[in-house]
Amino acid sequence: MTMKRWIWIPVLVLLVSCGQSGQNTVRLMTHDSFSVSAELLQSFEEEEGIRVVLLPSGDAGAVLNQAILSKGNPLADVFFGVDNAFLSRALAAELFEPYHSPRLTEIPDGLQLDPEYRLLPVDYGDVCLNYDKAWFAQRNLAPPANLEDLIRPEYAGLLVVENPATSSPGLAFLLATIGHLGTGGYLDYWAKLRANDVLVADGWEEAYWGHFTAASDGTRPVVVSYASSPPAEVFYSETPLEEAPTAAIVADGSCFRQIEFVGILKGTKQRAAARALVDFMLGWRFQEEIPLQMFMFPANLNAVLPEVFALYAAVPQQTAEVDPIDIEVHREEWIEAWTEVVLR
């Protein structure tokens, strides 16, 4: 008879779940790479009298999907982590309400892609090729300097990229080739990369930890990663390093800039608190933490970069540009065409 207790489980579930969000609690839905120091978040909470609940809910694509599916009955008040590759999609889904934060004056116009202020830029990172310095030094081979170098025979079999159909840096790198070579030229370039034995991994983890010579037992000394990966290599080294073991290739047009946006979800019942949180995320204190917490660059011009970034991070002068609307209209078509040329 004791087994009968199980009957109460659904009832319990219903009871426990009632009455969850209290007054002045703001929920921030975000991806798994989000981070902020406990100290800073606590001081924000104390100063504003707001409690912040963080809801990291998977990788960037999955989180945006969850927001779209729960539209009208949002799971959170603020959403962080839409990037420019999915900006138009997020805006078209009408998930966000406009908010013209006073902090926007400190953020360059080039990063502000939504003229209606529904999505506000928080940080950016450049998806660039990284190479293993020691590997090239040992072989007396000059590392590739730009995208064009990679289709030359001396660099055959050296590159690993991520599949744009399953990986966000993979998609960003595909966009870099489209922005740089144009919609007429990128497929031809990829066909040559394929002929030069490019390896395609499913995601960044597998490309970096599985195939990149600087980080694994792999055989590929060039990988698609971020311009901020070399400083991260120094920061997260098991032994103190004088020099980064890897470097990013930042020639004009060889990188794609991912910009990450924050927005207030329509239907929030905590508008004032949500706005305070957005202001906080755009303000210099949070912005100065971004490099070491998330290995991205702060959007706010007043934020000072930490030493490890100033020393080891290269910033491309000119990144490859693709209009967000074009991305939204052609994303699937580009990925399918890429798949046809590179994989089939």
Binding site: D32, S33, A215, S229, E233, V234, F235, Y236, E238
Partner: peptide, 14 residues
């Protein structure tokens, strides 16, 4: 484990 795998650096993978 997945969180550690998400960032570069020998320490992360270790």
């Amino acid at each position: 484990i997945n969180r550690f795998l998400g960032q570069p650096g020998t320490l992360s993978f270790g």
